[in-house]
Computed example of a mutant assay.
Amino acid sequence: MLFRKRPVVIDAVRFEDSVECFDELQELGLDPVRVGYDVKPPVLRIDTLEGEMAAQLGDYIIKGVNGEFYPCKPDIFEKTYIEEGV
């Protein structure tokens, strides 16, 4: 049997070490925004349904259909999603 993924519109923010990015993540509903500066480059720590994950700079932070958050590597994101209205 073949299955097709349902079309879903998602909200996402690309992780950068900037106040603007942190503000966008909070507006998306990620609270708290926890950036670990104990490693270089810094990582964003996210509580996911599978436990804590660390997003690297450039990773996309996706808000799932049930309000959960998880990181996605840029290459996978670009193969999976297109910008709305393009």
Results as ranks from 00 to 15, higher is better:
Arg34Gly: 03
Gly64Asn: 09
Leu57Gln: 08
Asn66Arg: 15
Leu49Asn: 15
Pro42Ser: 08
Asp23Arg: 12
Gln26Ser: 09
Tyr37Asp: 02
Glu68Thr: 13
Glu83Gln: 13
Glu52Leu: 06
Leu2Asp: 09
Asp23Asn: 11
Lys79Ser: 15
Leu44Thr: 04
Val33Arg: 00
Leu25Asp: 01
Arg6Tyr: 12
Gln26Ile: 00
Glu16Tyr: 11
Pro74Ile: 02
Glu24Leu: 15
Phe22Gly: 00
Val33Ala: 06
Gly51Asp: 05
Ser18His: 05
Gly85Tyr: 06
Glu50His: 11
Gly64Ser: 02
Lys79Val: 05
Glu27Tyr: 11
Pro7Gly: 09
Glu50Ile: 08
Leu28Met: 15
Val13Thr: 05
Glu78Met: 15
Gly36Tyr: 09
Val39Trp: 11
Tyr37Ala: 01
Ile10Met: 04
Phe69Tyr: 06
Gly29Trp: 13
Pro41Asn: 07
Asp11Glu: 15
Val19Ser: 11
Cys72Met: 07
Ala54Phe: 07
Val65Gly: 03
Pro7Phe: 11
Val43Thr: 02
Glu27Arg: 14
Lys40Arg: 07
Asp11Gly: 02
Glu50Phe: 14
Glu83Ala: 08
Leu25Asn: 06
Met1Asn: 11
Tyr81Lys: 03
Phe15Tyr: 10
Gly85Ile: 01
Gln56Arg: 14
Gly58Ser: 03
Asn66Ala: 13
Ala54Asp: 01
Gly67Ala: 01
Val86Ser: 12
Phe69Asp: 03
Ile10Asn: 07
Lys40Met: 02
Gly58Thr: 00
Gln56His: 15
Asp59Tyr: 13
Gly36Pro: 00
Tyr70Arg: 04
Glu16Ala: 05
Glu84Gln: 14
Leu2Ser: 07
Arg34Met: 10
Gly85Pro: 01
Glu83Tyr: 12
Ile76Cys: 07
Gly85Ser: 07
Glu20Thr: 10
Glu83His: 10
Ile62Leu: 04
Asp47Ser: 10
Asp11Ser: 10
Met53Gln: 04
Val8Thr: 12
Lys73His: 14
Phe15Thr: 04
Asp11Trp: 13
Ala12His: 06
Gly36Phe: 09
Arg34Thr: 14
Gly29Pro: 05
Pro74Gln: 00
Pro32Ser: 04
Cys72Tyr: 04
Lys63Trp: 06
Gly64Ala: 07
Thr48His: 05
Val65Cys: 08
Gly36Cys: 03
Glu52Gly: 04
Arg6Gln: 11
Gln56Trp: 15
Val65Tyr: 10
Val86Met: 15
Gly64His: 11
Val8Asp: 12
Phe77Glu: 03
Pro7Leu: 13
Tyr81Glu: 00
Gly51Leu: 09
Asp17Lys: 00
Leu25Arg: 11
Val43Trp: 13
Thr48Trp: 06
Val39Leu: 02
Ile10Tyr: 15
Phe3Leu: 10
Gly29Ala: 00
Val39Lys: 09
Lys5Arg: 15
Cys72Pro: 07
